[in-house]
Simulated assay, not measured.
Amino acid sequence: MLRTRIITAVVLLAVFLPTLFLLPAFYLGALFLLLIAAAAWEWSRLIAPEATLAAWLYALCCLFISMFLVGFSLPEWQLGLLALAALFWFFIAPFLLFKGMNLSLLKLRFFYSILGLILLPAAWLALLLLRDLGPIFLLSTMALVWVADIGAYFLGKTFGKHKLAAQISPGKTIEGAVGGLALTYLFAFLCIVYLPLGDTIFGAWAVRFGWIPMVLMVTVLTLFSISGDLFESQFKRLAGVKDSSHLLPGHGGVLDRIDALLPVLPIAALLVGLI
């Protein structure tokens, strides 16, 4: 399984990195828009697995919302969408995670349907905004999520003894989460030391506010990456499935790959606005 995951990850990076660095920003936006549409299809299938046509319509609706906000250049609406996503991750997601498996997806079907049309377009919009600041700026922000995930996986496997959220994701441990957080601190420090300060959110934040606020910012983004992962795991368990789909060998579905990015990208985009 690990070998398949690594091969799929290498293939994804082989597509992502040239698109990010060698092509105009439009192509990256188009690539991720397709991923968001696939994630929306998976999202709808989790809510109503028997409604095949509804899943395609849901994906089209997500595409329409995304392209409408960007195509018509509506900054107030864009900010509103990012703010709605951030409010969910700050206030509602913790409540849902606290409830564990004591939720009914059937009763919350309408809520989750609306939620997907907020979180998925918001993540895509945030990606475009961060890309406008430079490919390194976007890549380093996304890499924070990957570093946290890698650190949590391997350190959790090695040292993990205490479950982080046993009902939702039995494989995740407190030791893994702490290890992932420590690795993100190291990653942010290396970005500040070896990259121009304005090229990453870490350097820009350290220059504007200082080192301690920068560490707090990294902590917040890392914790929300964990929250996004747990939220998607809870969503799948409520739907009674292991993977959101089988589109990516070894990784499950697209949602399984972008779950931690869903909170981090919009929150990072809003934090950048404070610099």
Rank of each mutant, 00 (worst) to 15 (best):
D132S: 11
G116M: 07
F110N: 14
G116Y: 09
G100S: 04
G134Y: 03
F111N: 08
L130W: 05
M142A: 14
L127K: 06
D132P: 07
I118E: 14
N102C: 10
G134Q: 05
G100D: 02
L103P: 02
A123L: 11
L130M: 06
S140L: 03
I136W: 08
I136V: 08
L133H: 07
W124C: 08
T141W: 07
K107H: 10
W124F: 14
F110Y: 15
L127I: 06
I136G: 04
N102V: 06
G100Y: 00
Y112H: 13
L117D: 12
L97Q: 00
F110P: 15
L130C: 02
G116K: 09
L139Y: 01
L127F: 05
D132A: 13
L103Q: 03
R109F: 14
P135V: 05
F98Q: 13
L106M: 15
L128R: 10
Y112G: 13
L120C: 08
L105Y: 09
A143L: 07
L127Y: 06
L106H: 15
G100E: 00
I114N: 13
G100K: 05
D132V: 07
A126D: 10
A122Q: 10
L120M: 04
Y112M: 08
F137N: 00
N102I: 11
L117E: 10
P121A: 11
L139T: 04
L139D: 02
R109W: 12
L97I: 01
L103N: 01
M101P: 03
L130F: 06
L119W: 06
F110E: 14
W124A: 12
V145H: 04
F137P: 00
A143T: 11
L133P: 01
L106G: 14
F111M: 10
V145I: 05
